[in-house]
Protein backbone atom coordinates (compact mmCIF):
# COMPACT_ATOMS: atom_id res chain seq x y z
CA UNK A 1 0.00 0.00 0.00
CA UNK A 2 2.78 2.38 0.96
CA UNK A 3 4.65 1.51 -2.23
CA UNK A 4 1.55 2.24 -4.29
CA UNK A 5 1.15 5.60 -2.57
CA UNK A 6 4.75 6.43 -3.33
CA UNK A 7 4.28 5.55 -6.98
CA UNK A 8 1.12 7.63 -7.15
CA UNK A 9 2.88 10.62 -5.62
CA UNK A 10 5.73 10.22 -8.09
CA UNK A 11 3.27 10.13 -10.98
CA UNK A 12 1.45 13.24 -9.82
CA UNK A 13 4.65 15.10 -9.08
CA UNK A 14 5.97 14.31 -12.55
CA UNK A 15 2.77 15.49 -14.16
CA UNK A 16 2.66 18.72 -12.23
CA UNK A 17 6.36 19.30 -12.81
CA UNK A 18 5.78 18.97 -16.54
CA UNK A 19 3.01 21.53 -16.44
CA UNK A 20 5.10 23.85 -14.28
CA UNK A 21 8.09 23.45 -16.56
CA UNK A 22 5.90 24.36 -19.51
CA UNK A 23 4.60 27.49 -17.87
CA UNK A 24 8.04 28.53 -16.66
CA UNK A 25 9.42 28.37 -20.18
CA UNK A 26 11.81 25.48 -19.68
CA UNK A 27 9.63 23.77 -22.23
CA UNK A 28 9.84 27.02 -24.07
CA UNK A 29 7.28 26.80 -26.74
CA UNK A 30 3.80 25.71 -27.63
CA UNK A 31 5.08 22.87 -29.81
CA UNK A 32 7.04 21.26 -26.99
CA UNK A 33 4.11 21.64 -24.63
CA UNK A 34 1.79 20.07 -27.15
CA UNK A 35 4.07 17.06 -27.57
CA UNK A 36 4.54 16.67 -23.83
CA UNK A 37 0.86 16.77 -23.12
CA UNK A 38 -0.03 14.35 -25.85
CA UNK A 39 2.26 11.93 -24.04
CA UNK A 40 0.73 12.92 -20.72
CA UNK A 41 -2.80 12.32 -22.01
CA UNK A 42 -1.84 8.82 -23.07
CA UNK A 43 -0.20 8.17 -19.73
CA UNK A 44 -3.22 9.48 -17.89
CA UNK A 45 -5.67 7.33 -19.80
CA UNK A 46 -3.60 4.24 -19.08
CA UNK A 47 -2.49 4.95 -15.54
CA UNK A 48 -5.10 7.24 -14.07
CA UNK A 49 -7.30 4.50 -12.66
CA UNK A 50 -4.32 3.35 -10.61
CA UNK A 51 -2.52 6.58 -9.81
CA UNK A 52 -5.24 9.20 -9.76
CA UNK A 53 -5.31 11.09 -6.50
CA UNK A 54 -8.17 9.88 -4.39
CA UNK A 55 -10.28 12.89 -3.47
CA UNK A 56 -13.32 12.59 -1.34
CA UNK A 57 -16.08 15.12 -2.05
CA UNK A 58 -14.48 16.49 -5.22
CA UNK A 59 -16.17 19.62 -6.47
CA UNK A 60 -17.58 19.33 -9.96
CA UNK A 61 -15.31 21.08 -12.42
CA UNK A 62 -16.43 22.16 -15.89
CA UNK A 63 -14.03 23.19 -18.66
CA UNK A 64 -14.62 24.65 -22.13
CA UNK A 65 -13.31 26.97 -24.83
CA UNK A 66 -15.51 30.04 -25.27
CA UNK A 67 -16.22 30.94 -28.94
CA UNK A 68 -12.76 29.91 -30.19
CA UNK A 69 -11.67 26.50 -31.44
CA UNK A 70 -8.06 26.28 -30.23
CA UNK A 71 -8.29 23.63 -27.54
CA UNK A 72 -4.63 23.05 -26.63
CA UNK A 73 -4.77 25.01 -23.38
CA UNK A 74 -7.95 23.23 -22.35
CA UNK A 75 -6.35 19.84 -22.95
CA UNK A 76 -3.37 20.73 -20.79
CA UNK A 77 -5.39 22.04 -17.87
CA UNK A 78 -7.87 19.18 -18.07
CA UNK A 79 -5.06 16.62 -17.90
CA UNK A 80 -3.64 18.16 -14.75
CA UNK A 81 -7.03 18.60 -13.07
CA UNK A 82 -7.96 14.99 -13.86
CA UNK A 83 -4.73 13.65 -12.46
CA UNK A 84 -5.31 15.61 -9.29
CA UNK A 85 -8.44 13.54 -8.78
CA UNK A 86 -11.06 16.17 -9.49
CA UNK A 87 -14.26 15.30 -11.27
CA UNK A 88 -14.12 17.25 -14.54
CA UNK A 89 -16.64 17.64 -17.35
CA UNK A 90 -15.32 18.69 -20.77
CA UNK A 91 -17.84 20.95 -22.52
CA UNK A 92 -15.77 21.17 -25.73
CA UNK A 93 -14.81 24.22 -27.76
CA UNK A 94 -16.52 26.87 -29.88
CA UNK A 95 -19.09 27.35 -27.12
CA UNK A 96 -21.46 30.29 -26.94
CA UNK A 97 -22.13 32.06 -23.66
CA UNK A 98 -25.57 30.46 -23.50
CA UNK A 99 -24.19 26.97 -24.11
CA UNK A 100 -21.54 27.23 -21.45
CA UNK A 101 -23.97 28.69 -18.90
CA UNK A 102 -26.61 26.05 -19.70
CA UNK A 103 -24.09 23.23 -19.30
CA UNK A 104 -22.83 24.73 -16.05
CA UNK A 105 -26.38 24.62 -14.71
CA UNK A 106 -27.21 21.20 -16.12
CA UNK A 107 -24.13 19.56 -14.59
CA UNK A 108 -24.36 21.59 -11.37
CA UNK A 109 -20.78 22.72 -11.81
CA UNK A 110 -18.94 24.16 -8.78
CA UNK A 111 -15.92 25.58 -10.63
CA UNK A 112 -15.99 26.56 -14.31
CA UNK A 113 -12.70 26.84 -16.23
CA UNK A 114 -13.04 28.99 -19.38
CA UNK A 115 -10.33 29.15 -22.03
CA UNK A 116 -10.16 31.79 -24.81
CA UNK A 117 -7.81 32.67 -27.63
CA UNK A 118 -9.10 35.96 -29.05
CA UNK A 119 -9.75 39.23 -27.23
CA UNK A 120 -13.46 39.46 -28.17
CA UNK A 121 -13.94 35.97 -26.76
CA UNK A 122 -12.17 36.91 -23.54
CA UNK A 123 -14.42 39.95 -23.19
CA UNK A 124 -17.46 37.68 -23.55
CA UNK A 125 -16.60 36.15 -20.17
CA UNK A 126 -18.27 39.25 -18.79
CA UNK A 127 -21.54 37.93 -20.21
CA UNK A 128 -21.04 34.60 -18.44
CA UNK A 129 -20.64 36.49 -15.19
CA UNK A 130 -23.80 38.50 -15.94
CA UNK A 131 -25.71 35.30 -16.68
CA UNK A 132 -24.44 33.74 -13.47
CA UNK A 133 -25.55 36.77 -11.48
CA UNK A 134 -28.90 36.94 -13.29
CA UNK A 135 -29.63 33.26 -12.72
CA UNK A 136 -28.16 33.30 -9.21
CA UNK A 137 -25.54 30.69 -10.12
CA UNK A 138 -22.85 30.43 -7.45
CA UNK A 139 -20.27 28.65 -9.64
CA UNK A 140 -16.68 29.93 -9.37
CA UNK A 141 -15.28 31.25 -12.63
CA UNK A 142 -11.59 30.77 -13.55
CA UNK A 143 -10.31 32.06 -16.91
CA UNK A 144 -7.23 31.36 -19.01
CA UNK A 145 -5.73 31.89 -22.45
CA UNK A 146 -3.65 34.33 -24.49
CA UNK A 147 -5.61 37.57 -23.85
CA UNK A 148 -5.35 37.04 -20.09
CA UNK A 149 -1.60 36.47 -20.36
CA UNK A 150 -1.16 39.62 -22.44
CA UNK A 151 -3.19 41.75 -20.02
CA UNK A 152 -2.71 40.63 -16.45
CA UNK A 153 -5.70 42.59 -15.17
CA UNK A 154 -8.19 41.42 -17.78
CA UNK A 155 -9.60 38.63 -15.59
CA UNK A 156 -10.73 41.22 -13.07
CA UNK A 157 -12.31 43.39 -15.74
CA UNK A 158 -14.46 40.53 -17.03
CA UNK A 159 -15.61 39.53 -13.57
CA UNK A 160 -13.74 36.23 -13.17
CA UNK A 161 -12.87 34.91 -9.73
CA UNK A 162 -9.31 34.01 -10.71
CA UNK A 163 -6.79 33.94 -13.58
CA UNK A 164 -5.68 30.36 -14.24
CA UNK A 165 -2.32 30.85 -15.89
CA UNK A 166 -1.69 27.10 -16.25
CA UNK A 167 -2.77 23.72 -14.94
CA UNK A 168 -0.51 23.88 -11.91
CA UNK A 169 -1.84 27.26 -10.88
CA UNK A 170 -5.43 26.12 -11.27
CA UNK A 171 -5.22 23.34 -8.66
CA UNK A 172 -4.62 25.50 -5.57
CA UNK A 173 -7.15 27.98 -6.92
CA UNK A 174 -9.81 25.31 -7.08
CA UNK A 175 -8.91 24.11 -3.61
CA UNK A 176 -8.95 27.63 -2.22
CA UNK A 177 -12.19 28.62 -3.89
CA UNK A 178 -13.95 25.48 -2.80
CA UNK A 179 -12.64 25.83 0.75
CA UNK A 180 -14.28 29.23 1.04
CA UNK A 181 -17.71 27.88 0.09
Amino acid sequence: MEQKNNHRQLFLDALLAMDRIGSEKVLRDAAQQQQSFEAVEQIISRMLPEFRRDRKNSPKIGIGVLIDHHALGKRIVKAVVQAEGFEIFDFGDGLSVEEIVDKTMAYRIDVLLVSTLMLPSALKVKEIRQQFDHRKIKTWLIVGGAPFRLDSSLWLQVGADADGKNGTAVIPMIERLVATQ
Binding site: A30, A31, Q34, Q35, H69, H70, A71, L72
Partner: peptide, 11 residues
Protein backbone atom coordinates in the same frame (compact mmCIF):
# COMPACT_ATOMS: atom_id res chain seq x y z
CA UNK B 1 -4.69 22.72 -40.79
CA UNK B 2 -5.30 23.89 -37.24
CA UNK B 3 -2.40 24.07 -34.81
CA UNK B 4 -2.53 20.55 -33.41
CA UNK B 5 -2.63 18.84 -36.81
CA UNK B 6 0.12 21.13 -38.03
CA UNK B 7 2.40 19.97 -35.23
CA UNK B 8 1.74 16.40 -36.29
CA UNK B 9 2.81 17.39 -39.80
CA UNK B 10 5.98 19.10 -38.60
CA UNK B 11 7.16 16.30 -36.34
Amino acid sequence: LGFEKYLELIY
